[in-house]
Design a protein around this nucleic acid. Sequence first.
DNA 1: CCTAAAGCATACTAATATTATAGGATTTAT
DNA 2: ATAAATCCTATAATATTAGTATGCTTTAGG
Lengths: 154, 154
Amino acid sequence: MRLSKRGEYGLRAMIMMAEPAEKKGVHKMMQIKEIAEREEISPKFLEQIMLALKNAGLLHSKMGVGGGYYLARAAGEITLGQIFRVLDGPVAPVKCVSQMAYEPCGCPDEQTCGLRLVMGDVRNAIADILDHTSLKDVIKRQGAVRRRLGLSKK
Amino acid sequence: MRLSKRGEYGLRAMIMMAEPAEKKGVHKMMQIKEIAEREEISPKFLEQIMLALKNAGLLHSKMGVGGGYYLARAAGEITLGQIFRVLDGPVAPVKCVSQMAYEPCGCPDEQTCGLRLVMGDVRNAIADILDHTSLKDVIKRQGAVRRRLGLSKK
DNA sequence: CCTAAAGCATACTAATATTATAGGATTTAT
DNA sequence: ATAAATCCTATAATATTAGTATGCTTTAGG
């Protein structure tokens, strides 16, 4: 049940972009170089990830000097589930309970397969969280923790 | 977020063993050969899986002619979470929210990392399901579905 | 218009993990 | 003694992951 590095980096990048997007407007741009430095990850690897997010319609970009990426929609309108699926594929632990990529998984009787029933619950539990958590929610939550710890960013 | 074949086969085998265990007593034995045939999986692969479950204390075995495996405890006392962890490792999507295998995951500030907070929720949601679903629960649920569909096993 | 800075796109590689397969050792009922 | 079963470990084949490399395209600014 692991999140790939690809997914992790992509989610981190999107969360990082959401903060300025909320404060300074959605069109506030960020560059790969900057994000990669702050997260200490390979800029080239991140480039691929950002490109995938862009081609999936979650990011927009501007080419050329002074270019960069910005969120395609308000931070409240982009969920972690959307990002996750672009980078790591379906949320479901087994294909036979996947909404976005169903395939039979070879149990003798799928309808009454106990494992499938439970894994369906797991899928729903994960999807419930990821699909109902927007980038804005994450930012708010980070802020709440900071305040609670008295680290309130100055 | 995928369940490995190892995990899938192991969970299926344990669920399959739980039914006779409930009906005929925990010591009802089953052999690898039989399980592998019914699930249409490689007996040799299953052998490794069963051995792991045995070494983890979830199964007991009897060697030699007429031997086989049986549940180490009543079906109500073995959870899917226990089985899953033996075969697929920690439930957590990222190591920094793992209960059984914590490791820092390299965010600048772990305490206030938004991704970590959400992934913690995901971990808990998955663990809640798997740790509170016993083999007996699965059997009961399968039975309920069968009855509802009028397939009540005769 | 030239150049440098940025994204775009794809191919490739190295490392790791997964899914088995193989082969023998050990135990036990008959 | 034999055959049937588990035990145990090594190995192979394949797939996935994570990261590199290379060149192309677009654009701001001198």
